[in-house]
């Protein structure tokens, strides 16, 4: 039996290099999902606070579905179902080409829609916290609708939504662990392989938990930095 330190080394008998690769996958998946989730979430929130009932309805259906399905199920549906559906559409238009939804893209899409549906709620309540006077003020000084949104509302919106978004980011980081179930070699899957091969399950799943804890701590530091920055610019205005 190799000692714990050999198993945790970076050498050929150690598993740290494999787990480090998994950590890289986890981080890149979370970072790649974040912008998708934020953008979709923002537009869904805009739709849900619109005066147009049909837009509100479309937004509500979206959040109802993706907040109601288990993340794991969404992931399977995108990974297997999406692959079959996309394959059939492509084959219909141009037979012969192959488009594959690999597990990274499937994870990005599935986690992105889940993130965006929660994110839209955060944005929505932030929207509601911004008084109508802000819009009216914007229009009064001759800004267009888009300009008012971009220059007046959005900066305030982000500041109000930031704590909620920070929470969602931490959830996203944890949810990436689910992609291990569709074969993406993320932190948890790499740890799982190490656990299976070495039969040191407690050690390696413990390591995986620690990795996520460290990621959460680093995120908290980053979030505090952003909050300070955004907050101070608010005071000096």
């Amino acid at each position: 039996m190799d000692s714990v330190w050999t198993l945790l080394s970076f050498g050929p008998k150690g598993w740290s290099d494999d787990i480090a690769y998994g950590v890289l996958v986890t981080i890149s998946l979370a970072l790649a999902t974040l912008p998708i989730g934020l953008v979709i979430g923002f537009f869904v929130a805009v739709a849900k606070q619109s005066s147009e009932p049909s837009l509100r309805m479309a937004g509500n259906v979206y959040t109802t579905i993706f907040r109601g399905l288990p993340e794991l199920l969404t992931l399977f549906v995108v990974f297997y179902g999406g692959q079959i559906a996309v394959g059939q559409i492509i084959r219909f238009f141009s037979p012969g080409t192959v488009v594959e939804i690999n597990s990274f893209v499937a994870g990005m899409i599935a986690l992105g829609v889940v993130f965006s549906s929660y994110c839209s709620e955060v944005f929505l309540s932030a929207f509601r916290a911004i008084p109508a006077g802000q819009y009216e003020g914007g229009y009064a000084i001759g800004l267009s609708k888009g300009q008012t949104m971009r220059l007046v509302v959005l900066p305030q919106l982000i500041r109000i939504a930031l704590p909620g978004l920070a929470n969602l980011w931490l959830n996203l980081l944890k949810d990436t662990a689910l992609v291990s179930a569709i074969g993406l070699p993320d932190t948890l899957r790499q740890a799982g392989i190490a656990a299976r091969v070495t039969k040191e399950a407690f050690l390696f799943f413990g390591v995986a938990c620690l990795v996520f804890l460290v990621l959460a701590m680093i995120s908290s530091v980053g979030i505090h930095a952003i909050e300070r920055k955004v907050g101070s610019s608010g005071v000096t205005r």
Binding site: F79, Y80, Q83, I84, V86, G87, V98, V99, E100, I101, N102, I182, G183
Partner: peptide
Amino acid sequence: QDWDGIIPALQAGK
């Protein structure tokens, strides 16, 4: 490819 997804992956052209 993980076993339980191996046939869907074949069908999808992976």
